[in-house]
Amino acid sequence: MRDPKTIAAKLFEGDRLALSRSISWAEDADPRFPKTLACIWERVGKARRLGVTGPPGAGKSTLVNELARHLREADRTVGILAIDPSSPFSGGALLGDRIRMEDRTKDSGVFIRSMASRESHGGLARASVDACDVMDAFGFDEILVETVGVGQAEYDIVGAADTVLVVLCPGAGDGIQAMKAGLLEVADILVVNKSDLPGADRLQTDLEEATHTRDIRRDGWEVPVVGVSAAKDEGLDKLLGAVDDHRAHLERVGLEAVRRQKRAQQVKRVVGERLDEELWGDGGLGGRVDSALNAGSTAYDIAELLLQDVLGGKLMAQTRDSKTEAAH
């Protein structure tokens, strides 16, 4: 299993090791991954992708486990991707989400992959979308993506999932929190987990008020607030009903167009990564910065020079400048 074609063929045969290995290639930025993806691309796009995000301790893993169980009861196969944070100091990570999903390990209709966020800071890992694509091509009906525990402004999940669940629980802030810009705005469905705990009703009301007083989203979807207790298996059917409703909504407004928009974000990110590598990787153009600074240039001048080298003179600002000059 060392070349993209073999691994793609194995993946189509349902070989779980091939699935696992190609996700590793994506994570390690192995040059074989883009080739593998090209071989399996025709089969990417059938799965529903559901993102689960929210603050640490809100019950994301427990909820994902319960969602997976319910989906399995409905005879849907499930791929799960669970992201945990990497240490900014050692680069290491402790991936512990599986512990809450242990019951699913014995089920051959479920595949769980833990992933460290590595150098990403948007709640996912760099290879998260890639892992979803591979699981999709493998043939899972449903893909559940659990982000790292997030604060108020980590939105990468929007680019990775068709439907985003933001999971909150009582005791983590008042109505003002619900009015703030940020995480709540990316939710397609707001989930109040631990709905059996005191304060859950209040949180639910605050969130409902916050969503109702906000302008209806441009795409016309009204964000529902669903109370569940994942640990006690309460409200899961209602939540999955809301997921179905959102899916139907997406199909009405044009699922493919929405997905292309999200895919475009990935293209943008990959370009950024490649530029980073070209500029700041070993032997990259960025090596000239020190001597240029030493020669007395400003940061802006140096940046301009580097960009001209990277883009071969096709700079937008430059074209604009020369047009303005010509007009004068």
């Binding site: 779980r16 090791l17 696992s20 290995r21 996700i23 590793s24 990497s86 240490s87 050692s90 680069g91 290491g92 990570a93 402790l94 991936l95 512990g96 599986r98 512990i99 242990e102 390990t105 014995k106 595949f111 769980i112 992959r113 833990s114 460290a116």
Partner: peptide, 28 residues
């Protein structure tokens, strides 16, 4: 191991040999 820069998956208690091998495969 985490502090030495490795990515560590912990299974929790009471795992059967099948479960351990299956997790090893899924996590590569």
């Amino acid at each position: 191991l985490r502090d030495q820069g490795m990515e560590v998956v912990y299974t929790g208690l009471h795992q059967t040999p099948e479960m351990i091998a299956e997790v090893a495969l899924q996590e590569d």
